[in-house]
């Protein structure tokens, strides 16, 4: 999924799949991420970055 916006205070990011489906994702394990980064998400947690 692609990071759309980051809520640093809460350690969450709004991420969108390639087709527009959006969900809130925990990003503590891959920080720092910035909007535009792609991440692999499992059970609501970004497990690894996939580069921009």
């Amino acid at each position: 999924m692609q990071v759309e916006s980051v809520d640093e205070a809460r350690g969450l990011a709004l991420c969108a799949a390639e087709d527009g489906a959006r969900s809130t994702v925990e990003i503590a394990l891959v920080e720092p991420v910035v909007p535009g980064d792609r991440v692999l998400v499992h059970a609501g947690v970004a497990l690894t970055g996939l580069g921009a």
Binding site: E26, A28, L29, H42, A43, G44, V45, L47
Partner: peptide, 11 residues
């Protein structure tokens, strides 16, 4: 779940 979901629970 395995180590894939465990971090999610931990967080």
């Amino acid at each position: 779940g395995f180590e894939t979901t465990a971090p999610s629970t931990a967080l």
